[in-house]
Design a binder for these strands. Structure first.
Lengths: 204, 204
DNA sequence: GTCTATAGCTGGATAGAC
DNA sequence: GTCTATCCAGCTATAGAC
């Protein structure tokens, strides 16, 4: 039992460090992007040496994959906790607002628009794909409910709505507005939601 | 005069090769992105050797910068040629449709959402910045005209409209729809325009 | 101006001591 | 499990022959 507890402690410390690594990777990724993020960057941010990283993650791709998986899991958790009173489209709006706030707070975009290499790397990560498909399933259901209630334009295919929705989580408009328009975070979120749901033209 | 003509011929050949290099760089960039595109790729595609590339462009950054400049110039030329009868918002729609078709045809996104390094590289390219500012000036004017006519929602700041507009030219929705929804190019363009101008919700 | 060959560097990944 | 030191691949960029 003493041994068991020691093992537990060790595992706990190991787990804590792993979280610290993932946090560092996430913020570095958000700041510099995949290619400019080096394993040295992450090791330095965590305060350990590069080879120690490789005790936790067998490659850079693996590390980034885990960070993305954790993010998707965060979205799934957030979705479950949204008040049931909200209508489908209100739920979509709420989740997107959450994702944009995460990003504005230095987190990752939910979907990596980035480079072809990142996409290739992620699409060969089966665990990541499983999570994405799960999230996609949940969102597809919400979109269909919203359509059935007339909350979404019926002539738009579900795929168009869903993919446009995902793309908003990595929309560079966020960065442009912050950098060049000096706009506050909440204002940015509101405008992005407004443009996505209502468009830029007046609803005559 | 014989000499002059010889020089002219040489210049012409030089110019032709330069165009070929820019074409190769453009399509390689569109296909693989900045970091995965190597100078060897471009040299191979053009059919010359790598050092010859450096006779035309002094660095990879320079080459990519010129490709982007040529793209912006293309947009400016296209804008000038749009029929004057079109209303401001119809002009915005027409130009965006053009940009999306260029991209679907294997060209570059007008604005590089890509990585931080690309943005850093381009923002330190004065000639590129000048072109972008020029294009931005023209588009800002069109947006203001459209607003004055009530063709755009008046409560949206110009910056929100403009930056959202730019972001649509590098919207990954395009790629998602092509890859996963097997949608035709024209249909993709129509849907993207529809979502941008009218939103996903019905205009009650 | 074109090539072959190579310098020089960066960054992912690992060997081996402790 | 952690570190120091290092390997090695791949890439940009250039030297130098023709």
């Amino acid at each position: 039992m003493g041994i068991l507890r020691a093992v537990r402690f060790k595992d706990q410390a190991f787990q804590l460090r792993e979280d610290a690594i993932l946090n560092a990777a996430t913020s570095t990724l958000a700041a510099k992007g995949f290619d400019l993020m080096t394993m040295d960057d992450v090791a330095l941010a965590v305060g350990i040496s590069k080879p120690s990283l490789y005790k936790h993650f067998k490659s850079k791709d693996d590390l980034v994959g885990e960070a993305m998986i954790r993010l998707i899991d965060g979205a799934l958790v957030y979705l479950e906790q949204i008040p049931a009173e909200l209508s489908p489209v209100e739920r979509l709006r709420d989740l997107l607002a959450w994702a944009l706030r995460v990003r504005l707070g230095g987190g990752l975009p939910l979907m990596p628009s980035t480079s072809a290499q990142v996409r290739t790397m992620l699409t060969s990560n089966l665990r990541y794909i499983r999570r994405v498909l799960k999230l996609n399933g949940v969102l597809e259901k919400i979109v269909q409910d919203a359509k059935a209630r007339g909350e979404l334009r019926p002539e738009l295919p579900d795929t168009v709505i869903l993919f446009s929705y995902y793309a908003r989580t990595c929309d560079p408009t966020v960065d442009y507005l912050r950098m060049y328009a000096k706009m506050g975070d909440e204002e940015i979120v509101e405008h992005l939601l407004g443009v996505f749901f209502r468009g830029v033209c007046p609803s005559t």
